[in-house]
Design a protein around this nucleic acid. Structure first.
Lengths: 404, 404
DNA sequence: GCCTTTTGTTGCACCGTAGGACTTAACCAG
DNA sequence: CTGGTTAAGTCCTACGGTGCAACAAAAGGC
């Protein structure tokens, strides 16, 4: 994407600064300067110098020396900077969320409001969200730096231009959410947009900024009202050539199947979308997914039929995706997480049959941990990941403008 | 994939050497040292020094100064080194190929043999291929360096271990082709394996080593007997977590469709595979695809029906892939290339209807250029790409062994 | 109380790029 | 033919960052 640029002396420093920071963040436990040197292959002197710079910028904290059972001089434990944070926002049909996450991956502050924003007015809903964000920011301690913001949206987004092209569940299209939020946020804090599934997938890929999570290669399915998805390869979300990847909900399961508002027929959402499943089970649309699972467990035929039909459709669609992408794991999030226990057996059986490489490695189905408004956390993680990739931008010192 | 490593002074040099080499290769026309400096952002002195090193290693050639219409001192044109080459091999059900390609992307020498190796004996067939390779190598001029080799195979490959796990068309499984070729090749020239579609896709992504081709983001479909595929994003083939990605032929088009030997039902290959199409058209399996196209053009109903059915199945399967991967273009290769003219209209219409993002960017269908044994060229391109990424390995001078 | 062990720091050398002056090799105008 | 102009390529010094090794610091072990 970026045009190739020559590496100069400063590039070394930038690159190694990032490496030290990522090493500290990725360790998951306090590490000493000497640990950093060993893990990165630098000399102790180099690692130490870079660590000093990160400490003085607040990106890395020095903890108190605790005399351990070791022999030599006790190490100074290094931790990701607790005062460096990012704001993650999420506007969804069922939840508005504002959450501040720090470099250690801890939630510093948050406000979540559940409700029903299907077909809502963008200005009013985003105004509401902006209010939550302002509350959260106002409650932060003085010394906390919020280095950026992100907004997770359930729809197709033009990330570069910051435009939400279409969010069917909300009924929104062609608007610039950052403009509508600008009044509530500090001037420098314009949120970068992102697809909800793409961002939520990050909470699985990373357990904290720079720290690998439960899986590094997986397909994430986000069941909201429709079904969004995100493919993660080696910890990186594949956004596609324009950022519109992951529309698993509109993979065709049966060309002779029911028509979908998208214009196609037999889309996965027609079988495993939230409303489709509840309708098939004879339940009202506001029924929580957990109740559907409970009724199926109790032996209710309509509920079982709805889940079997959903599992069958998911099997066909996911097998196609896994055949093309070769991913070992599917993580079910959103409303599908609550149903994972009942869906997984039939689903794994179908994938074993339909995925060509299953004889060498059977695909596995897992439920995402209960994580309300995972997209908001993911939006904050993405912002903090940018800091990990370019920490020099937050260092003091003369920022030399570079010709573009 | 590689564990993070500290950047040192030598890293700068390595990185910039590669940048200069890629600049020369990617330009597509002779460039001067000064051009390199401008395009990379280096100073003339740095670019010049690095170019000198590449020239003395033979990775870059200096052409004769041709006095152009320019005003100042005439430039010394730099070209990719013509004597640096790689060997690309392909073993397929219908062709054996050995091809030597140089850094300029030119075919220096090749031997192709058509035949029928369906269900053949691996040792004898690979012995045959080895013979072709030996002939090609023996005919090379003395001063040509063959820096590596690759082998394209129509099946599932474990690239790291060098094992062909399963090639249904050839009827081969669980073998190490490099071992069977070792007798025919020079000791240092052990071919790296690759999936045929993955490698053939490189001939579309790159028109020469390091030089961008017609498309950088596309799905390549390789119609041999089955249907292989490869997704290319920003010029990079996505091999998947284990290298088994791209099995588009086994995407399910209709769960109620005919059984496939793979164990699934309604696989794309059952509709658009070579034998499936010819059988549907009432033609014998050895009929060339071009004749099928001709008969359809002449109005023969059975041929038209076969193509319509194939286009319908392709539409469903490709729409699913494009929904998940967000690629702007599908390139039809192999036997599908000859049918592209007849398939494209129906296919593009289906994709426009079934791909969610089509309203913002309609997916396009294209035919790959006629390129016999594209996998062999792709195998050579991959090897040369490794040189472009790490040219210092071919430089003279003390090779300092690095731990790990 | 001294030795050992490990952490963190300091000073010097090395390496590669930046920058600018200089040389080279062409065209052009008179 | 000669000097001026222009741009390519080379050379030399300065700068910045890392490598290396010696040293200082802070603990435990005997």
């Amino acid at each position: 994407m970026p045009p190739p640029a020559a590496a100069r002396q400063a590039t070394l420093r930038t690159s190694n600064l990032g490496l030290v920071l990522r090493t500290v963040c990725g360790a998951g436990e306090p590490v000493s300067r000497a640990d950093v040197a060993v893990r990165t292959g630098m000399t102790r002197s180099t690692a130490s110098r870079l660590a000093d710079d990160l400490v003085s910028a607040g990106l890395v904290d020095e903890a108190e020396r605790t005399a351990g059972p070791a022999r030599g001089r006790p190490a100074t434990p290094l931790l990701p900077g607790a005062r460096v944070t990012a704001l993650g926002l999420q506007a969804d049909a069922g939840v508005l969320a504002a959450r501040v996450v720090d470099l250690r991956g801890r939630v510093v502050a948050e406000r979540l409001v559940e409700g029903d924003w299907v077909g809502s007015d963008p200005a009013s809903t985003l105004g509401h969200l902006g209010g939550l964000a302002a509350e959260v920011l106002a409650g932060l301690p003085r010394d906390v730096r919020v280095v950026g913001a992100g907004l997770a949206l359930p729809g197709i987004v033009d990330v570069d231009r910051g435009v939400l092209l279409r969010a069917p569940n909300l009924g929104w299209s062609d608007l610039s959410p950052a403009d509508l939020l600008a009044g509530s946020l500090p001037p420098g804090l314009r949120p970068a947009l992102g697809n909800e599934a793409d961002l939520a997938a990050r909470t699985v890929a990373d357990s904290a900024p720079g720290r690998p999570g439960a899986h590094r290669d997986f397909l994430y399915l986000s069941g909201q009202i429709g079904i969004g998805g995100a493919a993660v390869l080696d910890g990186r979300v594949m956004a596609g050539s324009a950022g519109w990847a992951g529309e698993v909900g509109h993979v065709c399961v049966d060309p002779a199947g029911p028509a979908c508002p998208c214009g196609s027929t037999g889309c996965l959402e027609r079988y495993a979308g939230r409303y489709a499943m509840l309708a098939a089970a004879g339940l009202p649309p506001e029924t929580p997914p957990a109740e559907l699972a409970a009724r199926a467990a109790a032996g209710e035929a309509a509920a079982r039929g709805a889940l079997d039909s959903a599992a069958g459709a998911l099997g066909v669609a996911l097998a196609g995706v896994l055949n093309v992408l070769d991913l070992p794991t599917v993580v079910l999030g959103g409303h599908l997480a609550a149903l994972a226990d009942r869906l997984a057996p039939a689903l794994e059986e179908q994938l074993a049959r339909r995925v060509l490489s299953a004889r060498w490695r059977r695909p596995r189905i897992e439920a995402a941990g209960a994580h309300p408004a995972a997209g908001a956390t993911g939006a904050a993680l993405r912002t903090l990941d940018e800091v990990l990739r370019a920490p020099e931008l937050l260092l003091p010192g003369p920022v030399v403008a570079r010709a573009q």
